[in-house]
Structure formats: C-alpha cells, structure tokens
Write a protein that binds this DNA or RNA. Structure first.
Length: 1128
RNA sequence: GGGCGCAUAGCUCAGUUGGUUAGAGCGCGUCGCUGAUAACGACGAGGUCCGCUGUUCGAGUCAGCGUGCGCCCA
C-alpha cells in the first residue's frame, strides 16, 4: 500500500520535513560519495557578502547555482560545491563606522585600528545566519561548513603568493591614481559613495586666454574654458581634438586673435556679445605642438623652456604645448581644454600619453600645487594655505588683472559632495597607488573571453568584450584597513622592495621583529581569531633586516588590496593553493559553470578572468596553434549572466521601500519549490524581471499541484486495486527504471498496450530527450516549458481519458493494469526529471511511490540517475495525431458551448471536416475516444462539406516567397478569388494546379498552399487551424432520457460526497417521481446508473427508514432515498 | 557623456533562421464538470507588438534615428 495522500497538502510544511530528512540521512553527502570516481563537473561559488540581508534576487542566483550542479550530479558527474564568503572591503568598514558613529580615517585611527579590525571581522557575520538559512531552505546544496572565507589566513596567504608572483614578474608597479578625494577627511571615496553625493551647485565658469608664443601666431590666444579656476596654477597642457574644425577670429575691441572650435563660435558671440570676425579656418591637427603662456608662472618660470628627449628621436618642450585628445567635444566650452593632470582622470591620462613619448625621466612630471588637505602649497605662494574652492575668487581677480580673463559667468551643474559631510565638495586628486599591469595581457584576456560560453551570448562581444577592449591597468591598492594587506616590504634605507608569499616566510626572515604585537593581543584576548594575525595592524608591526643594505629595516607598505582581487583569486585561494590543496586545485580548475547577476561583469567575471590569465601565463611556454600561451585557457567555460530582479514597483529592491517580501516569508507562504519554479520556468534567467508575488503563488496550481493531483489520483486507485509494486516487482530494484519495471510478470510490454498508453509514453520519452538536451545547453526555461506541457498532457488528457479504466471493476482487465503501469512509470520518471528543479516535491513523491516498492530502492530521488530517453518508444506521428484529436475535442466543446448544449446531454452525431486527409483513417479508428469526450453517439468524417464551410486557400508564403518573389501578392489574390472547393478538388485529383498571374503561369502543388476552413453561419460549428467540427443539435427523446440519467448520476454523486462515502462504498437507490419520462429514463439506463454510482439496488420506490432528499432534475422534481449498504 | 540591454494584452512574461489569424498564466466575464473535488476544464472580451523612417513580395522579428527605463562606466 502507498501512504494515502493528504487531501490538502501544504507544501511549505512538507518541505521542512524533507529538509530534515535530507539532513539526517546526509543525502547530499551521499549524492557526492556515489559519484566519487565519476568525471568532474566543476562549479565555482562566487562569494556573496554576508553583511546585508538576502532578498529574492539573491534567491535567483542561488537557485540557478543549485539547479545545474544537481542536474549534472544526476547525469553522472561529481560536482563538488564549496561555499564561500566575501568578507573584506569598504562596505564592511562603512558598516562598522556607522555602528561607531564615526566617519573619517582620522576618527578610525583615533578609535584604534586594532579594535576597528576586530569589529570588522565580527561585523562580517552579522547576517550570516540569515544567508545560511535562506541557502538551506531554498534547497541549495552546498558545503556551508566547509566554506572558504577571504579573511582566513590560508586564503590571505594564497592571495599573497599570487601577488608575490606578480611582483616578481614586474607586473605590480606604483603610479598615481586620480581619485575622488574628500580633503577634509583625508580619504578617497569609492565610486558608489561618490554617486550618492551628487548635488546641483553653482561654480564659476571662466574663459581664459592662453597666448600663443610662436611668432607666426603673434597676438593670438587659445581661448580656454574651465569651471575649476583653482586648477589653473597647475595647468600643464591645452588639449584640442585633431579632427575638429577650429577658427581664428579677430576681436576688434581686444585687438587680439582668438582660437575656438568653429561649432562653438556662435555660442561665444552670444555669450560675450562681442564682434568676432573670422580670420581663417583650420583643423585641430594644425594647432598641435604650439606653445603657449599658462595663466600662472609658478612652474613655467622655472621649467618653461625645459626640453626632454623623445623616444622617436629629437627633443620637445615637456609642458605648455597644445596636445591632441579624443575626448574633446564641441558641446560646451571652446573646444580647447585646459589640462591639469593632477585634478582629472582624463587629464592625467593625457599626461601619461605625453610621458610615453619621452625617454625615461625626461618627460613632463606631474604638477600639483595643492596638498592632500585641499589647500594650496608653497608651490603657489600667493594662495598658500587657502582651501581651493575659496581661492577661486582671488584667482579670477588675478586673471582679470593680468588681462587674460576673457569672459566670466555662473555655471550650474551636478557636482559630488561628501555623503558624510554634506558641505564638503569632493575634488579629484592624485594619490600614489599600486597597479597591476593588466593592459599587457589585454589580447590574452580577449582570446580567453572568446572561449567562454556566455549566456546570453551578447555579453561576449558586448558588455564584457567592450570592457576588455578598453582595459586599463588595475588599481589594486586601497588606503584602508580591513582587507588583504599588500605583502610588500620596503627597505627603509634604499627603498628597494620585496614581496612575501606566506606568513611562515616572514618568520624565517633574519632579524624579524614585531611578532609580539600579535602575541600580546592574543594573550590579552585568547578568543581573537588566529586569522587576524595576517591583518592590519599586527602584520604592519612585523619588520626584518634588509637584504639590500646592512643595518636597514624592511617594513610593509601601508596599503591593503582591492577586495575584488580576493574574490577573483578564489579558484586557487579557496584551497589555500599552493601552500596546500594542490590536488584539489588541479582537479577543480577551470570551472565548467558559474553564474552571477549582470552587475558582476566588471566585478567577479572580470577579476576571475584577469587573475587567471595573468597569473598562470607562462612566458616560457610557446604559443599553441591558436596563438594562446597559457596552459590554463580560462577560468570558466559556461557562464549564465542573470538579469537583475527589481522590486514589485519596478524600482531597485530596497528595504525601506518594502517592495519585496523577505525570502523566509516566501518560503513560509508558498514554499521553496514554488519560488524555484517561478524563477526557472517563467523566463530565461538573463531576463531582468520584477519581483512578482502572484506569479510565485501561481506556480502551485499551474505545475506543482497539478502534478500532485495526478499523483494523488494514482495513489487513491492503486490502493483500492492493490496495485503494489512491492508485490508485483520481483527485483532487484534500485531506481525503478523502465528496465527494472519490465521485470514485473504481469506487466505487458509497451507495444502491446493501447494507443493512449503508447501516446503518453511517447510524450514522456520525447520530454526526456528534450529536457536533457535543453539542460545540457543550460536552457532551464526551455526544459521547464516542456515539463509543464507534459504534466498538462498527463493530467488533462491521459488521466482524464483513462479514468474509466482505473474505475473499471474488472480486476483482471489487462487494459486496466496497463493504465497503472503506464501512469506509474510516468510518475516515477517525471519525479526524477523534476528533481533538480523542484527537489522537495520530487522527494515527497519518490518516497511514497518508489521507496515503498522495496528497501533496495534508492533512499532519495536525488541519488538517482537522470532518466534517459528510449527512442523506440517515441512516436512523433502518434503525437501529431493525438494533438489533432485533442484539437477536435476542444472544438467540439467550443461548439457545444456556442449551442448551449451541456456535455452531460448526449448528442447523436458530430461531423468533422479536415483540411488534410493525412490522418483521417487513424482518427476514424479512434473515434470512440472522441465520442466519449464529447458525449456523442457517432462521429462522421466528411469530405464534401460545402454546405457547412468555405475553403480559404492561401499561398504557403515560406515556400513560395523565394520562388515567385514579387508575384506573391498576386498569387494570393488569385487563390482567394478562385473557388476553394474546386481548387482543392483539382489539387487532390491531379496533384497540382496552375494559375495565370500577370500573364505568367504558376504551378502549385499541395505543399505550396495552405487551406483554412471557415465555418458558415447557421451551424453549431467551431473551426480550428486544421479542421471544422459541426454538431448535430437534434435531440431525440431517447437522447434526452440518457441526459436525465446522467443528471441523476451527478446528483447521487453529490450526495455520496456530502455524506463522505468511501470511494468503494456500495449504495441503494430509491427514486420517487411523478414524471413518466424520468421513470423511463431510469429504467432504460439502469445499468449505467448502477455502474457509475456503485448502486447494488435501484428501485422506483421509497426506501424504508430513509428520509427523502428533494432534488430538481431539469424540469422535474424527485424524491431520493439513498443509503450505504453495510458490508456483509 | 559612453557602452550594453530592455520596451508585446489590465498584470507578469513567451515569441526559435523574417512568412501574412502574435501566444501563455494570472486577473476579469460567461459557462461547464463534480469518484483528482478547498481541485479541474472550456469559452469569451482584452493588442497601434514604444514612435518614426528604411530594407523586403512580406517586419513584433532586420537596419537607421528618436523616446522611455535599467545596469555598468565616466
């Protein structure tokens, strides 16, 4: 016996029980253990940060990460799943600062780096529990206990090793990075923080003359525009676009010539209200190399005539020249752009480009008259000590006094302010920073990118490819506290450096000092995690004797690294490689599959690719035939880039807006399977979707419950008929595959079964083949659609049309047994098919349907192999025909609806007209099925149906388009004008017809046309694509009486339900009615009524001792006497 | 400002290499079924496929331009 299925299943409750079952039986561990020696399917977990609450968007990521490993495991692969957590970085520090109520680095230092770091370490785990809970409850199988953690010593040491290698290969260098700088707080802000602080503000907008010094350009100035006058003392270049048109104009009032972009001349005239007469036109290219006098002479007076040596030979002046730049536009300003490389990222790039032209050390160096506190230094003595923004006014006054201020106005624009100190504007400012020379490997990275299977594929050449194309060196260091310390120690005397690859390496250094700082802290607080010893401030205290100069000390640089480097290092760092885990790393690289949301394109996807490409690149290895050097081609082969999930209102999910529900609550209301199915089955995973709770809820009736009802139906009847696999199957059993089931002695082979059984098994095996192909191609959406269609077919056609067989009282009916075996095989197989998608539902069904068969059967569906399709059972023609049959049934119901004829009322005849005769014979042979479904006595297929329908003949556009081209519209007209019936008759007789179109004759065969049938008015008819169904609406008395009998059956069935009859209870029926018609109806249909209601006795008399029930039946009233017969 | 993506029914989303009647579910309306039953089914209404221009015999689909939204980067 199967366990009877609960009437009102609550999936969330069932799921919690299953979670417990998995845990106590260690099913996940067993699923891995049994694939121990199987080929690997490698999955990388992109580490989430656990310092925020998980939301439904995170569920999508985690559900997809679960789906494919589960699927591949069932397909016979070993898929290890190591969890990971991203723990470093500014967000953690910000979180702690909030908690402490402090902002600036100064305040952190005042609070103490040591306690600050400790707080960071604790803060990392703030939402850990919620994350783990969500992960488990969703059914995401991953080794949480064995997670890699980026702050752990082993992880940090792996990262150190990689940095050491990069350093030793000369790929790490120090340079300037222009950052958004909060001068008052003395810290750089991350892009995210800058983005938060944009506000509209008014800045001075000044037009300044830069007089050209070349005698040929006498009395001519470049006209330059800027909104940051305070950067003018640090001016180094003027930039023009080489391919933009410029014009020299004469200003009579001034008595001078000016150079501006042609496109901006009119704007300038309007703004200044000056007469500007055009002198001559030129390309930007002609201006390049011209020298000018900068507005301030602080630097120019010393080095204005300095020349450097060009790599290309010869010399050039280092600064105060016109240089080319592609970024110059003619939208605003003058087309000539003031360049102060210290205070702008693009300006700085111009400086780098210029430096590149000169030999080492002879080019321009960075000019910066402002200190880190945002005040002018002694390099600009007139303004020394003044905050830059406050100096604007004085600078403008000076420009006017010098006669080079041409025009001045106010400029309103968005400008970033510090989000922590709203009054403080940010400035761009150069900071020393460490870089990783990624640009050197751009082509390698592009080559590796081409080997990645991106889903959706436009990521490859689009977002990711473009990003790689415009690669710049990775600014690796951060002047912060909570991060992997940059493992570079500097000789305090010579400035020479070396990198350290692990903690033990430090301990072995000669004259190592400072280890006591950690030892003391640990002694004072034994609970301190040992991992902190490799962090600030403890690691900063460790010094040793310099190998570069006797008596000198080596001390670590102060920076930590970008935490993105941590996550990108996970392929090796998760194993602690190379200090340990060599074997695991070799086995688990590269990944077959990763997945994250699209915002990771420049995050994890990039850092994985960059680090793997650069780190494992081996110069000594000759390029292979494809020109690629490295032995590790790329870190991941297949990558699903998930869309972002927005909140219910279409905006970003936000806690304060409450535009989504917390995952835990979704689980409690609908269950994890409902959420998973919603995520997998409603759209391809890269679609950006809105969180939509109704759709989650709908997953239940649409799929989960529909399958559950079929399963429940099966169990009810299997128990009644003692269909017990445990009894019927001799074994040995393990997975209940079709082969195992075929051992049952009383089970007929599929070819011997009826058409309906063969059909659903054909659908089943077609579905298996489809789903496997889709899932191998990472197409979960396609797979789900197919599964959905199968469950629908099983429920709404197979079971619906097989009910009678399950209900048949004949125990030995072989067709009945066929139905059981067929449905059983379908259910067991579907359970395996859906296991990766909805693991809970699959498990629940498996436990009852399969486990009960034998103790040999695998204890969980998740230990099974994924089903394989048996091509010999697939019968596409049968599928097509059954589909047509279903369409006819649907049309028949539609016609009944129109004619207001209930299905309960039997009809004499339907007539079916088919557009094509291909399947008519088959349909005729199966008309019994249709008669039953439509409750008609007879079905007739007719060919000459002109009285009912019109034939609309259209060209087969796809076929004829290429052949007749421009004639197609006329062919269409000709076909429409011809008499459809005649045309069709000719076609059927002769195999082709010839039309005259535009005095050309066009010959068409049967394939060249499409026939549509159009029902004529006045008939109870419905038309579909391929056929028309016409009802005979004539009702004879006999038919009416049959209808009454069915009505009576329904009334009695209602009563059975009301009094909670068992499915097998027998009853006695007494009917009292004055209507002879009704009496006759009962007498005529006695057997039918008895069979349907399980009546052992039906009389037209009252039953003694029973209180009558009054009912209405059509126009009649009747008294019903009903009672259950006690079992003898 | 740049790159990429998205825009289809009231809502959430599909729509395979271009083929002439654009689909699903929900919601709404009408009805049916009642031994899977706190389910289920059928039918119906509902569309300028964001706009414009183009390519083509034919465009939701391809191209160009524009509008709106999102993400990433400036």
């Amino acid at each position: 016996m199967f366990e009877s299925v609960a009437q009102n299943v609550r999936f969330p409750d069932q799921e919690t029980q299953i979670l417990h079952f998995w845990k106590s039986r260690q099913i996940y561990e067993k699923s891995l253990e049994q694939r121990r020696s199987s080929p690997s399917f490698v999955f990388f977990e992109g580490p989430p940060t656990a310092n925020g609450m998980p939301h439904p968007g995170h569920c999508l990521t985690r559900a997809i990460k679960d789906l494919f490993p589960r699927y591949r495991t069932m397909r016979g692969y070993l898929c290890r799943r190591k969890a990971g957590w991203d723990t470093h970085g500014l967000p953690v520090e910000v979180e702690v600062c909030k908690e402490l109520g402090i902002h600036s680095k100064e305040e952190i230092e005042a609070f103490g780096v040591e306690p600050f770091i400790q707080k960071c370490q604790q803060s990392v785990w703030r939402y850990m529990q919620q994350w783990e809970q969500m992960t488990e409850r969703l059914g995401f199988w991953i080794h949480l206990k064995d997670a890699y953690v980026t702050y752990h010593q082993s992880y940090v040491e792996s990262v150190w090793w990689s940095l050491q290698r990069l350093f030793e290969r000369g790929l790490l260098y120090q340079g300037n990075k222009i950052v958004w700088w909060w001068a008052q707080g003395g810290t750089a802000l991350s892009a995210g923080e800058v983005g938060q602080g944009y506000r509209q503000g008014a800045d001075p907008s000044v037009y300044v003359r830069f007089p050209l010094v070349d005698p040929a350009w006498k009395n001519t100035s470049l006209l330059v525009w800027t909104t940051t006058p305070w950067t003018l003392p640090s001016n180094q270049f003027a930039a023009v676009h080489p391919r933009v048109k410029y014009v020299v104009v004469h200003d009579a009032e001034l008595g001078e010539n000016l150079v501006v972009a042609t496109d901006l001349l009119e704007t300038m005239k309007t703004k200044t209200k000056r007469e500007l007469s055009e002198v001559r036109h030129l390309d930007g290219q002609e201006l390049i190399g011209l020298r000018y006098l900068p507005p301030f002479s602080y630097y120019h007076s010393r080095t204005g005539d300095l020349r450097g040596t060009l790599k290309a030979g010869g010399t050039d002046f280092v600064s105060w020249r016109v240089v080319p730049a592609e970024f110059v536009t003619t939208d605003t300003g003058t087309g000539v752009v003031h360049q102060a490389p210290a205070f702008g990222e693009v300006d700085y790039q111009v400086l780098l480009d210029q430096q590149e032209r000169f030999t080492e050390g002879t080019g321009p160096s960075l000019l910066c008259a402002v200190g880190p506190d945002g005040k002018f230094t002694d390099e600009a003595p007139d303004y020394q000590g003044k905050w830059v923004k406050d100096a604007d006014r004085d600078i403008i006054r000076q420009l006017r006094a010098d006669g080079i201020l041409y025009h001045q106005e106010q400029f309103l624009h968005d400008y970033p302010f510090c989000w922590r100190a709203e009054e403080d504007p940010l400035i761009q400012y150069p900071r020393r920073s460490w870089f990783l020379r990624t640009t050197q490997f751009r082509d390698q990275m592009l080559a590796n990118n081409r080997k990645i299977h991106w889903m959706p594929d436009h990521i490859q050449e689009g977002r990711f490819g473009n990003f790689l194309e415009s690669n710049v060196d990775w600014a690796l260091s951060r002047e912060r506290y909570w991060g992997t310390p940059l493992p570079i120690w500097v000789c305090q005397q010579t400035g020479k450096m070396e990198a350290v690859g692990r903690y033990d390496e430090l301990l072995l250094k000669p004259g190592v000092k400072g280890l006591h700082v950690w030892a003391d802290a640990k002694a004072a607080n034994p609970d301190l995690p040992d991992d902190l010893r490799v962090h600030k401030p403890y690691i900063d205290a460790v010094t040793y004797d310099s190998p570069f100069a006797p008596g000198a000390t080596m001390q670590r640089v102060t920076e930590v690294i970008d935490c993105w480097f941590d996550s990108g290092a996970m392929p090796f760092a998760q194993w602690g490689y190379p200090h340990q885990g060599e074997h695991e790393f070799q086995q688990q690289f590269p990944a077959d599959f990763i997945s994250e949301a699209i915002d990771q394109t420049r995050g994890w996807f990039y850092t994985l690719l960059a680090i793997s490409t650069i780190l494992f690149h081996d110069d000594s290895v000759e390029p292979d035939t494809t020109g690629v050097h490295n032995s590790f081609p790329h870190p991941f082969r297949n990558c699903i880039v998930l869309g972002l999930m927005l909140g219910e209102d279409g905006t970003k999910m936000s806690k304060s807006k409450r535009n989504y529900r917390e995952p835990q609550e979704i689980f409690d209301r609908y269950g994890a399977d409902a959420l998973r199915w919603y995520l997998f089955a409603n759209q391809p995973p890269w679609t950006s979707i809105r969180y939509n709770e109704v759709s989650i809820r709908d997953s239940i009736p649409e799929f989960l419950l529909r399958l559950w009802n079929v399963y429940s139906f099966f169990v009810i009847y299997a128990n009644i008929d003692r269909f017990e696999p445990s009894r019927l199957l001799p074994g040995p059993l393990s997975q209940l595959t079709p082969e195992e089931l075929s051992n049952a002695p009383a089970r007929r082979a599929v070819p011997q079964r009826g058409e309906l059984d063969r059909w659903i098994l054909s659908e089943l095996h077609g579905t298996i083949a489809f789903v496997v192909e889709a899932m191998d191609a990472y197409d979960n959406y396609g797979a789900c659609q197919r599964l959905h269609a199968f469950v629908d077919a099983l429920s709404n056609w197979y079971v619906r049309r097989s009910r009678d067989r399950f209900w048949s009282g004949i125990e030995t009916d072989s067709s009945k047994l066929d139905a059981y075996w067929t449905l059983y095989e379908c259910l067991v197989t579907v359970t395996k098919l859906i296991a990766p998608f909805t693991p809970f539902l699959a498990e629940a069904i498996w436990q009852n349907l399969a486990r009960s068969a034998s103790s040999d059967v695998l204890e969980s569906v998740h230990l099974c192999d994924y089903p394989t399709s048996d091509a010999s059972l697939c019968d596409p023609e049968l599928s097509t025909r059954m589909e047509l049959l279903r369409e006819i049934a649907s049309l028949g119901r539609s016609a009944r609806m129109d004619a207001k004829l209930k299905v309960r009322q039997p009809l004499g005849k339907v007539e079916v007209v088919l557009a094509s005769l291909d399947h008519q014979a088959w349909l005729e042979a199966h008309s019994a099925l249709l008669c039953e479904e439509l409750n008609v006595k007879q079905i007739e297929f007719i060919q000459h149906a002109e009285q009912y329908i019109d034939y609309l003949v259209q060209p087969n556009f796809k076929r004829l388009g290429p052949r007749v081209g421009k004639l197609l519209p006329q062919v269409k007209v000709a076909l429409a004008q011809a008499d459809g019936a005649t045309l069709l008759a000719t076609l059927r007789r002769e195999g082709r017809v010839t039309l005259l179109v535009e005095s050309e004759s066009v010959t068409l065969d049967a394939e060249d046309i499409q026939v549509r049938l159009q029902a004529r008015d006045g008939w109870a008819a419905a038309q579909g694509d391929q056929c028309v169904v016409v009802l005979s609406t004539e009702l004879t008395d006999s038919l009416l009486r049959e209808g009454y009998a069915r009505e009576l059956v329904r009334i009695i069935a209602d009563w059975r339900k009301e009094v909670n009859c068992l499915y097998t209870d027998r009853i006695e029926i007494g009917v009292v009615t004055e209507s002879h018609e009704l009496q006759q109806a009962i007498l005529e249909n006695m057997d039918y009524i008895a069979g349907e209601t399980l009546a052992v006795n039906t009389v037209l008399l009252p039953l003694e001792g029973i209180v009558a029930v009054d009912r209405e039946l059509s126009a009649f009233t009747l008294q019903l006497f009903l009672r259950v017969v006690q079992e003898a």
